[in-house]
């Protein structure tokens, strides 16, 4: 055909382009993870990887399962809404196997003031204690931390 008489170089170029395109598809197929695009323009397995990370805070339900007695005391006092791990720290290791990790006893003199030290910046209706209130005596001498009102059982 006369039209393609001098078009040999075009076909060679098109062939080269096709080979390069196929190579691109091959490489792309190899390097793009299978789950990419499962939910959108990202690796779907990334969601599962993040969801599989270990938990450090066991959650309030786990504590209450065994320590129902403490939970009962707590529910009657002002600290009813405070979860165990808010003061005792992350204890998933303890709930997984109570033998391996025993939560340390807390130093109430340092712990309580974290929330209750008097400061004008705190909400006005929130119970706050002035620095001279306790005179160096540990809070638990008078206040049972799980139910802190003095007349609600007081010292343990």
């Amino acid at each position: 055909m006369r039209v393609f008489k001098d078009a040999g170089h075009l076909f060679r170029f098109a062939g080269l382009f096709l080979v390069a395109f196929l190579l691109f598809l091959l490489v792309r197929g190899r390097v793009v993870p299978k789950s990419f695009g499962e939910y959108g323009h990202y690796r779907g397995n990334a969601i599962r990887d993040i969801a599989a990370l270990p938990v450090r805070f066991a959650g309030h339900q786990a504590c209450a399962t065994c320590h129902a007695d403490v939970e009962e005391v707590k529910q009657k006092g002002k600290h009813a809404g405070v979860n165990c791990e808010a003061c005792h720290g992350p204890l998933a290791k303890h709930t997984d196997d109570p033998g391996t990790l025993t939560p340390p006893k807390l130093d109430t003199a340092a712990l309580c003031v974290r929330c209750h030290a008097a400061s004008a910046a705190r909400p006005r209706n929130f119970p706050q204690i002035a620095e001279d209130h306790f005179g160096g005596v540990a809070c638990e001498t008078c206040h049972q931390p799980h139910s802190p009102a003095v007349d609600a059982g007081g010292a343990q």
Binding site: I50, L53, P54, F57, G81, A86, P90, F126
Partner: peptide, 22 residues
Amino acid sequence: TLCYHRITKGLTTACCESCPTG
């Protein structure tokens, strides 16, 4: 991550879990 590893297990986030006042 909004504690994605916790909320997908039915737990709340670590910050909410430890917030004493809600």
